[in-house]
């Protein structure tokens, strides 16, 4: 019989992945393999991935006991079936592998998103007459047509033509910014300041608008 069982080392011991097949056969195969490598595996902690199988408490309990006789500890059962997960949990088994080690953790990049800040992503063009309002930041993948309005408590980023009206920092945040690939709004507001787009000449370039000394200024986009 082809072995469908894979055993690999993980942080918390060993992960046993059972393949397809009848539970009885697969369980027997596992126990056979385990006993063959008994000396090597002795004292190991096993997490067993049973796949889609729905297993009863009796089957899981029996598996744990049999492994225990071999000197192995079954500490977790992973399954796609919520029924199996629940059964495992009532037996005191874990159903998830633990989080990665601290040194493997990714350090989050410093952003302005503090706890509670939110942003909404809209993937369409806003046509005339459409009003999009959100207390946090707004990101639009599309155009904002003249006659459409965007009102954000936070920042506004338009990955397209911004030709409608926009109000960033609508609740009074004077650090709010407005960015667009084509910054040509009929009216731009940040907090309580209002500005009108000056007559544009030449190619459109990505720009960012912000308040500086209480006035709205727009600068070509420069990430530095």
């Amino acid at each position: 019989m082809i072995s469908t069982i894979q055993i690999k080392g993980i942080r918390d011991g060993l992960l046993v992945s059972l393949g397809e097949g009848d539970w009885g056969e697969v369980r027997d195969e596992l126990l056979t393999q385990v006993s063959q490598q008994a000396d090597f595996l002795k004292g190991a902690r096993l997490a067993v991935d049973v796949g889609n199988r729905i297993l009863r408490a009796a089957e899981l309990g029996e598996l744990r006991d049999t492994l225990s006789e071999q000197g192995l500890t079954l500490w977790a059962v992973l399954s796609n079936s919520p029924t199996t997960e629940q059964t495992a949990q009532t037996l005191g088994l874990a159903t998830r592998l633990s989080k990665p080690r601290p040194d493997a953790q990714v350090t989050p990049v410093e952003t302005r998103l503090q706890g509670g800040e939110q942003a909404v992503l809209v993937k369409r063009t806003l046509r005339s007459g459409f009003s999009l309002q959100f207390p946090g930041h707004i990101v639009i993948l599309g155009d904002v047509n003249p006659g459409a309005e965007v009102i954000a408590g936070g920042d506004v980023v338009v990955w397209g033509h911004l030709r409608g009206t926009v109000h960033a920092g609508a609740e009074g945040d004077e650090t709010a910014i407005v960015c667009a690939l084509d910054l040509s709004p009929t009216q731009l507001r940040i907090a309580s300041q209002i500005a009108i787009t000056p007559q544009r000449r030449g190619k459109t370039i990505p720009e960012m608008a912000r308040l500086s000394d209480g006035r709205v200024i727009a600068e070509p986009w420069n990430p530095k």
């Binding site: 046509r127 007459g129 459409f130």
Partner: peptide
Amino acid sequence: VRDADRIIGMIE
């Protein structure tokens, strides 16, 4: 064109 844009939005 401004009105047409509005009406297209409503049609959608």
